[in-house]
Design a protein around this nucleic acid. Structure first.
Length: 528
RNA sequence: GUCCUUAUAGCUCAGCUGGAUAGAGCACUUGAUUCCUAAUCAAGAGGUCGUGAGUUCGAAUCUCGCUGAGGACACCA
């Protein structure tokens, strides 16, 4: 719809212009402040210029009227134009708001260590990533998703050690001297108990078994993470194991060396990331020959770029921001275009419970499980609330407040609108077939504006996806629902002269609500 | 100390690449149901957009300083 409008205006104005939405729908559907820009050049007042430009739009096929006000030019779409778009959408619902793009995108997100269940902080990135994926795919991007599994290194070893010690304490009942850092939390004890059932309690007698426990537990945790994700409707196309990548280290390292950005010092191998305005150079191979975490990421990104996507998106927690430069440096040193990598940082979630702050740290063990919140609040509410906020703002929410599933939860409001539409159709005894060919004309302003708002979904999606700002979509859905509820209260439908016309508009509203919700992983309710 | 993010109504937040009288929801006050679901709607009240400068026809939006908040500054991941 927006494209047609831009095209129609371009045709008559023959110059660049900004197309925006007026503050108030009563002013118009679209507007441009072009007259302000031209004022200086033409040395005339914006008001006069706007008046003159309006005249160019006489006999337009898509605008009902074009008016000027205080220098703005406001465009009102005509019913025929809106009707055409609505008919098209309703007759081909599955394709509504779809389009085609050629860009291929590799989206990596969550990638939480398989050392414990997902906590509420992970949920933010998970929901953002999954929703971006759904929307991107709908808009026609060739987009794939991956989860990078850190199944090597110290953290996994620490997981095994933690379980081993927990087993000694809780199963063998011996005194244990805990190291400074280890994984706490009840799940560690649970794992120890499960391990004793599976392997016999003797497994906790010999330190040699720590590695075995690590591998076993990490697989268990990955399964748990997958099930946590499935609970909120997330499924990855691919899981990439860090460990399995190390066989390709030589190849990656050889490529990296070609850049002359590696060097050895103190028996360690470094990359010169300071050449990429990093604070310091970074170690990639330790003195004892073990690769650092960055080495894994170098292989992984080499692997990613070898698969030749047009664009790469990584969603990381904001605590990783310092890591961006060194990864980008490494990608550059590998001979790839690091600008193709976009890192989205999901800011921390501050969780409150009864106004007391929760500190979330896996290692400390006092963290809120994502699965607990999902159980209390429901996947739909969690998804909607998380997406309602820009991903770069700190998110505060109180678990207790979240439990109050009352009308303050916008997802109820939107579902209610959708359910109402469904019920009106039922009561009317009519189907889409009956109303899809109805011509929408002689509508009151409220009906026109409701229809117009419903038809905005495609441009909202494009905008939200391009800017990676999905709160634009949630805002839109709330707004459309509000317009609908207002209209519903002011107009009777069944048995009225305009029944069929209104039903067609409602069908369009329902389609937009349903499609929009679906793209953020929420199934619209037909009944409350 | 350096870097990232952030500051808008009592609370939680929108406000698109600068543009019309700064908007929602919750909470508060008042009203609407012989009628398709009142889980709704209408009206009211509530703001010197953290602060000080700058850029210009025009700033919540852009630039700089200051202040507050959260986070990161590993050979951990």
């Amino acid at each position: 719809m927006k494209k047609s409008v831009i095209h129609a205006i371009e045709e008559r104005l023959n110059c660049d212009f900004i197309l925006e939405k007026p503050k108030d729908l009563s002013l118009g559907h679209y507007a441009t402040p072009i007259a302000f820009n031209l004022a200086k050049k033409l040395k005339k007042s914006p008001t006069i210029i706007a008046d003159e430009l309006c005249k160019k739009f006489e006999n337009s096929t898509i605008f009902k009227k074009v008016t000027s006000l205080k220098g703005y030019i406001n465009f009102n779409l005509n019913e025929e134009f809106l009707n055409k778009h609505a008919s098209l959408a309703i007759m081909n619902q599955k394709n509504f708001a779809k389009s085609n793009k050629n860009q291929t995108i590799l989206l990596e997100y969550v990638s939480a260590n398989p050392t414990g269940p997902l906590h509420i902080g992970h949920a933010r990135g998970a929901i953002l990533g999954d929703s971006l994926y759904r929307i991107g795919k709908h808009l026609g991007y060739k987009i794939s998703t991956e989860y990078y599994v850190n199944d090597a290194g110290n953290q996994i070893a620490m997981l095994g050690l933690s379980i081993f010690l927990a087993g000694q304490q809780h199963v063998l009942k011996v005194d244990v001297k805990w190291p400074e850092e280890f994984y706490r939390g009840e799940y560690i004890i649970d794992l120890a108990i499960t391990a004793s059932k599976e392997f016999g309690s003797s497994i906790f007698e010999d330190k040699k078994n720590i590695e075995k426990l690590s591998i076993w537990a990490k697989d268990k945790m990955l399964e748990l993470i997958k099930s946590n994700l499935a609970d909120i409707g997330i499924k990855f196309e691919k899981f990439v194991s860090e460990k399995s990548l190390y066989s390709k280290w030589d190849e990656s390292f050889k490529k990296l060396k070609k850049s002359n950005k590696t060097f050895t010092n103190d028996g360690k191998t470094w990359i010169r990331s300071t050449d990429f305005s990093d604070e310091k150079d970074r170690v990639i191979i330790r003195e004892d020959g073990r690769p650092t975490y960055l080495a894994g990421d170098i292989i992984y990104h080499n692997n990613k770029y070898q698969r030749k996507y047009d664009h790469y998106i990584n969603i990381w927690g904001a605590d990783h921001h310092g890591y961006i430069l060194r990864v980008k440096a490494a990608i550059n040193f590998l001979g790839y275009d690091e600008k193709k990598l976009e890192v989205i940082l999901a800011q921390m979630v501050t969780l409150l419970k009864g106004k007391e702050p929760y500190k979330m740290s896996k290692r400390a063990g006092s963290f809120i499980l994502m699965s607990d919140v999902v159980r209390d609040a429901g996947s739909d509410a969690l998804r909607f609330v998380f997406l309602s906020k820009k991903n770069d703002t700190h998110l505060d929410f109180d678990v207790d407040m979240f439990k109050q599933e009352d009308s303050s939860n916008p997802i109820f409001y939107i579902n209610y609108a959708h359910a109402r539409i469904n019920q009106v159709f039922k009561k009317s005894g009519k189907t889409l077939e009956d109303i899809k060919d109805i011509k929408l004309k002689n509508l009151n302003d409220d009906a026109v504006n409701l229809l117009y708002t419903a038809l905005l979904l495609p441009e909202v999606l494009e905008d939200a996806f391009k800017l990676r700002q999905l709160q634009k979509l949630t805002e839109y859905l709330k707004n459309l629902s509000s317009n609908f509820h207002k209209f519903y209260n002011e107009n009777r439908v069944i048995g009225e002269q305009d029944e069929d016309k209104f039903l067609k508009i409602f069908a369009m509203v329902g389609l937009s609500l349903r499609t929009g919700l679906n793209l953020i992983g929420i199934k619209a309710k037909n009944k409350m």
